[in-house]
């Protein structure tokens, strides 16, 4: 119900409500400028949230697959040490599951280096155990101690664990990015409320005359709401465009250093910044409408 009204009020081509309020140069330019800046910032906040989100997801997946235990032992002890290591792992807190890889899987892992025909069984390759952690994770130092006691040939390789605090940081950064978008929206609502209130006070005489000839509050409000909404829409569109161009022009280093050079949108994510101008317009519509109806309510 409300949506169509908003659109109707804006596109009804009711320029008459526009004309009855004198044009206001400075407020117009400042609103346009503020909307553009806010949209520009929002593009970056959005890009930051999405990029760090991607990073956190990928590293998080790596973490879940996590660690391996590698057992190097003379052929006859291999079986016993593997069994011992598995026993240790099964009773370790923070280990969700542990599983010794079978020959086929080991061969698949080695294939890239030795070709597909390696007779794994005949080679002195270490036995690998895949360890899946719980969310809480295990105490690596403690696990190493117990392993060395039970299976001297076992080496815990937890190379991806150092990423855990980074993942947490990336997740925090993503949350901060979304919070920034909310704050930018709030600041924009505040700026537009101020600008609209200033415009309304500056036009108190005009509003008085309109009221005397029988204009309803809705009509008077519409003149202001339309103006500020369209201005914000235009400003935000320009700001969004500038923000996206700036992102496109960021130098790319390909792989690695994701944090710095991966800032931006991928594929369908490019559709998200397109939402910024309409959302900004909606914020402006709501803010101006509230300001207008409040100011009008105070007049006789």
């Amino acid at each position: 119900m409300r949506g169509p009204r908003v659109i109707g009020d804006l596109v009804s081509g009711d320029g008459s409500a526009d004309r009855v309020v004198p044009p206001s140069g400075q407020t117009a330019h400042l609103t346009l400028f503020a909307a553009a800046v806010m949209a520009f910032l929002a593009v970056f906040a959005l890009a930051l949230s999405l990029s760090t989100g991607r990073l956190a997801d990928r590293w998080g997946e790596d973490l879940a697959r996590a660690s391996t235990v590698r057992i190097s032992a003379p052929g006859e002890q291999m079986q016993a040490q593997t069994a011992a290591a598995l026993r240790v792992l099964e009773t370790t807190e923070g280990v969700a599951s542990a599983r010794a890889l079978d020959a086929t899987e080991q061969r698949a892992l080695l294939a890239p280096w030795f070709g597909p025909e390696v007779p794994v069984e005949d080679l002195p390759v270490p036995q690998l155990i895949e360890v899946i952690e719980t969310d809480a994770g295990f105490d690596a130092a403690g696990l190493r101690l117990r392993l060395s006691a039970e299976a001297p040939g076992a080496v815990l390789d937890d190379h991806t664990r150092w990423r855990r605090p980074l993942v947490r940081a990336a997740e925090r950064l993503r949350a901060l990015g979304y919070l920034s978008i909310l704050l930018i929206g709030g600041a924009m609502a505040a700026i537009i409320t101020l600008a609209a209130s200033a415009a309304l006070s500056a036009n108190a005489q005009v509003i008085g005359v309109l009221r005397l000839v029988g204009a309803e509050d809705r009509y008077v409000a519409r003149a202001f709401v339309r103006r500020f909404t369209l201005r914000t829409l235009a400003g935000a569109a320009a700001g969004t465009l500038a923000g996206c161009l700036a992102l496109l022009l960021l130098p790319s280093s390909g792989e690695g250093l994701d944090m710095l050079t991966g800032l931006g949108f991928r594929g369908a994510e490019w559709l998200l910044p397109l939402l910024l101008p309409p959302v900004a317009g909606l914020v402006a519509y709501a803010a101006t409408r509230r300001a207008a109806l409040r100011v009008l309510g105070e007049l006789t």
Partner: peptide, 24 residues
Amino acid sequence: RDDIAMVRRRIGVVHQDCQFLDHL
């Protein structure tokens, strides 16, 4: 307030100080 607005469409008022929109 809207009732009053509607009433003013049925009452034509000539104000002592006229009251126009000076930009139109």
